[in-house]
């Protein structure tokens, strides 16, 4: 099973988790954020090595989940922006494939999306993107 398929297999069992990874050629660039139950975590990093682009995704998972071979269990406290402990149990997925797909994405669950056709009709052909500024990493907000 490829890493990507393994991810979606795992993700499908935990639809409350979604994430995005973009292929970039920047060193040590945090390029996106992982959302868990509407709280953004800074846990996605992509690092360009000498030869390969390495994508690493850490995501919370139940401690008793049987991980696919492509995932590694990691124990580390993860705090949400509000300081709440989200989990101590993480699964790590890495790719060193130089042909990393341009985008690996989960999806926002239906219940998290704006409700009602009227909203969608009034705002057809638009997309809503949340922006977060945290004083820990944003000097202008401190």
């Amino acid at each position: 099973m490829t890493g990507r398929l393994a991810w979606f297999f795992c993700w499908s069992k935990h639809p409350e988790i979604w994430f995005s990874v973009e292929n970039q050629d920047r060193d040590h660039q945090i390029c996106s954020a992982l959302s868990v139950k509407d709280e953004v975590l800074e846990v996605i990093q992509m690092v360009k090595g000498n030869k390969d682009t390495v994508a690493t995704v850490l995501f919370p998972c139940p401690p008793d989940i049987k991980l696919d071979d492509d995932f590694t269990a990691v124990s580390s406290p993860v705090l949400a922006f509000n300081g709440r402990l989200v989990t101590r149990n993480l699964a790590k997925w890495s790719s060193t494939d130089s042909t990393l797909p341009q985008g690996i994405r989960g999806a926002v669950p239906m219940e998290k999306r704006p409700k009602g056709t009227s909203w969608e009709q009034r705002h057809a052909n638009t997309t809503v993107i949340r922006v977060t500024l945290d004083s820990r990493v944003c000097l202008a907000a401190s």
């Binding site: 996106s32 926002v108 999306r113 500024l133």
Partner: peptide
């Protein structure tokens, strides 16, 4: 001094 994180409400869009 400003670092912004972007997170689509609906990735499928």
């Amino acid at each position: 001094g400003m670092r912004a994180y972007w997170d689509p409400v609906n990735w499928e869009q």
